[in-house]
């Protein structure tokens, strides 16, 4: 059995989740708690990856970060990074595809936090940062964890955008879902079955854990 796609998928999903959390949590908070000009535009923009075909997203990404683009050339010249056809490119693709799930989850869970608790904390002398970390985040954590699990699962299953940006290079960018496609195309059903069972098992276990997690509440 070739375990390389499994390892690659887990690695890519892990970094994509991290990236998505770092961007998605502040973004979700912003959409939930601040009213500003262009907020509905931003909201629409963030949700776009959920409805656009992944291949279209992948194409946009290629145009944006490819070697011919301004960003791509800058990354190449100054940081010696090329994202196209690398696992880092796959991380970017997976992160963008799963970002809406994270932002949605964070926004909904922060909106469910009673604004009065934040107001009281303000009158008790706390800064906005302190309020976020000591009131909002602890009260919204369940929804945020749920968003993270969904993000991870989505990132693990990513196919279209990843294929467009990172390609199908065995041992380098060939993730589980791409390897399954590849195995089936090549008639290697043993490898396909192995990966299909594994990815199903990981997903089911993840969702079971999530179910348990949302039942824990110490207060």
């Amino acid at each position: 059995m070739n375990w390389m796609p499994v390892y690659l998928s887990l690695k890519i999903a892990f970094y994509a989740s991290l990236f998505t959390a770092l961007i998605g949590i502040p973004l979700g908070w912003l959409l939930a708690r601040r009213k500003f000009i262009g907020s509905s535009l931003l909201s629409t923009f963030v949700m776009l990856p959920m409805v656009l075909p992944p291949t279209v997203l992948g194409y946009y990404l290629l145009v944006l970060i490819g070697r011919q683009s301004i960003i791509g050339r800058w990354l190449q010249d100054f940081l010696q990074i090329s994202l196209v056809f690398t696992w880092q490119g796959a991380v970017l693709a997976a992160a963008i595809v799963s970002l809406p799930l994270m932002v949605r989850a964070v926004q909904a869970s922060i909106e469910s936090v009673d604004k009065n608790t934040e107001d009281v904390a303000r009158t008790l002398g706390k800064s906005e940062t302190a309020i976020f970390f000591r009131i909002t985040l602890p009260l919204a954590w369940q929804g945020i964890i749920a968003g993270l699990v969904l993000t991870f699962a989505r990132a693990m299953g990513e196919f279209g955008a990843t294929l467009m940006v990172a390609g199908n290079i065995p041992g380098k960018t060939q993730t589980m879902s791409i390897a399954i496609y590849d195995a089936v195309q090549g008639g290697n059903y043993e490898q396909a079955n192995f990966l299909v069972v594994l990815i199903s098992a990981i997903t089911i276990i993840g969702l079971l854990c999530l179910n348990q997690l949302t039942r824990i509440n110490r207060w």
């Binding site: 009065n116 608790t117 107001d119 009281v120 602890p138 009260l139």
Partner: peptide, 8 residues
Amino acid sequence: QNYALFPH
């Protein structure tokens, strides 16, 4: 009005 005690 709802006291808004910190539930956690």
